[in-house]
Design a protein around this nucleic acid. Structure first.
Lengths: 172, 172
DNA sequence: AGCTGGGGTGCGCAGAATGCTCAATAGACT
DNA sequence: AGTCTATTGAGCATTCTGCGCACCCCAGCT
């Protein structure tokens, strides 16, 4: 539930970079690395969770470790009217991890995993059998050449403090 | 660094489901929910991080919150010999989040984000300009019909304790 | 049957982190 | 000048962490 579309600033980016490097880091350690007070880091973390800037934890679970070593992308052409119905049916298939509605000749990009080649064949058939699906095309993932990373964008965001760095409060 | 390809069991799955529901939950809370002792949950969590069963934290960062509202998948045909070079060059582009080597008419599936339509146009051009890239095709993501989820697979793994549930140690 | 190793459990402890409040402050905005 | 928001440091009660240790269950082996 993204309560409000919150845009990240340099501090958020630094916090997230630290989390990317040390996922189990404590709040104090993160605050230290990001160069802010513990209270600030605490507030930022809470807001990041709250605002929906952080996607579900599920994204961190690697299907391979769960026993699904095969990944494939299935593109599908769908009777336009039935897009939502098809999506709902796809959602009921456990091996379907993600479904995008895309532009171009294909209407859907479906991210699936499978235990084996036969398993993948079965799932592909299951997709093709959904009413409204006209054609499908399966592309097997053979290599992960670049694994999901967003650090470059984070570093870009962290590097340019659009505001000239607030003076810290120093009581004497 | 996946030290060893570790396969998850029912307890791991229950822990991960709990984490999916409450990402900031403490170890004790997780242990409680998963129905295991705190020490066990502690050991499992450490092993999950260590074994590489958990993907990078970066996956949880939503590009939209970072100011990249547009997502697209670019497929590319590449001179086969130059696959690795092309991948290396793509890795240098911050807006490229993921690159898969796939089977079928296209060789690469490239996941990119952009700030705007012009930005996307620029990035697409940048990809096409890489030596070795012969043809590209850009599919803009218009809707997220099913957002990445792995809970169904986790529930499947959590539901079937392949071993008939160990008897807990009850002193006295 | 007897032994052994791995994994789970309970218990306990010292140190650290958490979650919270509060007052003070700097900067932005009116 | 006045107001508002975000950050900070300090403090405090509670909880969690990280670790060791002894014990127990189960499976596999001799």
């Amino acid at each position: 539930m993204p309560s409000r579309p919150h845009t990240l600033d340099a501090i958020d980016a630094r916090i997230l970079l630290e989390l990317a490097a040390h996922p189990r880091a404590t709040t104090v350690a993160i605050a230290d690395q990001a160069g802010v007070a513990r209270n600030t880091a605490h507030a930022r973390l809470a807001r990041l969770e709250e605002s929906g800037a952080l996607a579900s934890f599920e994204r961190r679970v690697d299907p391979q470790a769960l026993g699904y070593p095969l990944t494939a992308f299935v593109t599908a052409q769908v009777t336009q009217r039935k897009l939502d119905e098809v999506a709902a049916t796809l959602e009921a298939v456990p091996e379907v991890l993600q479904v995008y509605g895309i532009s171009g000749p294909s209407d859907l990009l479906i991210h699936v995993v499978a235990e084996s080649a036969e398993d993948l064949y079965r799932i592909a058939g299951q997709i093709l059998a959904i009413p409204g699906v006209e054609r499908t095309n399966t592309a097997l993932v053979m290599r992960r050449l670049v694994d999901y990373r967003i650090a470059p964008l984070l570093r870009r965001a962290a590097g340019t403090p659009e505001r000239p760095a607030r003076q810290p409060y120093r009581p004497t």
